[in-house]
Design a protein around this nucleic acid. Structure first.
Lengths: 205, 205, 205, 205
DNA sequence: ACATAATCGAGACGGTACGTCCCGTCTTGTT
DNA sequence: AACAAGACGGGACGTACCGTCTCGATTATGT
């Protein structure tokens, strides 16, 4: 986490203030390198400094270790694709999975996802950050979609929202990771349809 | 992959044969270190050699790189817990998920799983090996359970076995990774029940 | 060399005048550090600024480089011991050498002399300054002593004054530097006597 | 001082022996850089390693600090010019001073001499080494010349040999350092003649 | 029994990156 | 305008490992 205090009432510290430009270029260089498939462990401070056109000191002055820097770098990433939520529940869920699928096709996103997925043991802060930034916002959106479905009667009224999300997302990730080849284009539909069969209310009930 | 040929009929090569003891202690040291939470990237040949009481050359002579060594080390791991398959389909599936849950409670298994999950980009061979050793055997067992259920009428006849496996396993992994706290004890039951509602045939259809 | 012009008629520049106190404390800190045995190369502007309680800018504003600062610092040093010139030529010369000897006993003077002696290759301005401040005044005094001796007949009338000075001073420095232990108390007498006699045997003595 | 034991009876240590070639090229690079006018303080291990085509570790493995390396480097230097000793005493002494004068004309020797002269406070081992290697051998040669002169009657029988050497060498160094311009070609003759005569007038001449 | 030969441990090799220190320059708000 | 404070890009420090390369010693087999 960045060391510099930005508290409102705090007196500005003496001396030259830290350069925002340098900070930005450091973050950018970090994301660049991560996006090129370089893992957190292989990522060297020196390479970041060199690409950012910055002295090593300027990095160490802000972040005491690599993990903190990567955490802050990931924090600047926007939730990549806004989720549409206007069609039927099935359509919205399919779209949601398709967004996940699409992201794994782009190297940069795939690498960053890998970073988040891996090493949650060694880099717990990193994983936590990813949860806040990437997982939680989507969870909220999909939860809204599911709840809408429960209201309109499209879904079971007693559906466990978190469980439903886990079934959908988990299946998508699992199949992408462990299926033989690359995920086929109709995978999102197939997952949603299979899962929905359980979410829907029984016709004669 | 180990270079030395041990084919039956092949003439024994001249010179001092490779020490099996050294080989074993190298593998053991590797698994030890991985089990202590050291990641593949952080794992150094030097530390393995030192812990195994072996020269670096003795390692490099057998494996041309770190990844190959880790692959071979993982290969010596047994499928940790045999899956019971005697009860109802629901019971067997719950047991399957409980095994996964149990494994993530032990540091060593958790670390090794993390290895497999992460870095599939940078270490594809490693991920592939993990698929063969850990994923595939379980997939077969669960598939058998599911097919038995389809035969007995406990499950839909048109169930997509792979999809069902993905929904169950994926949800388990997802919730373990992204839920707020640690996974509760009844998580396997809840996942299976939620998923089964979709796998079962409709009563009045 | 100090950049600020202090010429009488020049218009006083606008803005806050430079602090004389800062200037003095910078010089003092510099001499302190040099006197503690820190060489010119090891002497850091940062350490001077810190010891003087001054910002680095305040130093660089006055001197464009370290050498200039050291030159100015040396310039503030007084010719340490006034040379007596009242006795016989021999006595005055012995006193002169004893002054040199005495100076090398004090760490501070010894360090500053070392500065002057060394690095004349890398710091020619520094060596030149030392010549002006320390060597030349003494040369003048000793030259006067020698000339008095030539007038009174105590010394050869055709004596080469510069050469005589070089023989005396050079021998003193040489023996202090390269003799086995520390210079004995009677070294000045012995040098002067030996030099006065010459190497050749007296024809009729 | 080099760490490696070369004692006769000592058992050869295990592992790959240290490369003599690397050692030589390190020493050579060091002397090269010193000869180019780079001072001991400015001399960086990294520049030596780079010029010698050697890793930094290879240097640090042998010498724990820069001074030890420079000491060993200077130790490899031969006494540069053999002193002739066949003519009259005066001629031999002039030749001796001319050798010194000549050496100060070559950058490399001048630089190395400067190293030895300076910083005897901070680098006493270095100065001591220089005394052994450069000063002492010459002292011995000149002492022999002087003693020969004392035997043949060319010089006073009670001449203090060390003092005479100090007068000659000291004057040469002093004049080279502190005279206005560069030392004139006839400086050695003039010094020797002046020293030989002594300062006092001859009584019966 | 003895030469041949591959492997063993140890550790030096040329490198890369580490995190720290200091360089000389620059950019702030205050005096 | 000068001041202190301190951030800036840069370069060297001494350390830790990398993967490769010699070493003498060991341990088998084929004469």
């Amino acid at each position: 986490m960045n060391t510099q205090q930005t508290a409102e009432g705090a007196a500005r510290p003496a001396g030259r203030p830290r350069s925002e430009k340098a900070e930005r270029s450091i973050i950018e260089a970090t994301l660049d390198l991560l996006g090129e498939g370089i893992g957190v462990s292989e990522l060297s401070i020196e390479s970041i400094a060199s690409r950012a056109g910055v002295g090593k000191t300027t990095i160490y002055r802000r972040w005491s270790n690599k993990e903190d820097l990567v955490v802050d770098a990931l924090a600047t990433l926007k939730p990549p694709i806004p989720l549409p939520q206007g069609g039927t529940v099935r359509d919205d869920l399919v779209t949601y999975l398709r967004v996940i699928q699409e992201e794994t096709r782009h190297l940069r996103t795939r690498c960053i996802m890998n970073i988040a997925m891996s090493d949650s043991e060694r880099h717990p802060r990193l994983a936590e950050r990813f949860r806040e930034l990437a997982v939680e916002p989507r969870r909220a959106v999909v939860a809204a979609v599911l709840r809408r479905g429960m209201d309109t009667g499209e879904l079971r009224a007693d559906l466990d929202v978190d469980m439903a999300l886990a079934l959908l997302s988990g299946a998508m990730v699992w199949l992408t990771k462990w299926s033989d080849g690359h995920s086929p284009a109709d995978l999102p539909e197939r997952i949603v349809d299979e899962a929905l069969k359980g979410f829907r209310p029984r016709p004669a009930e």
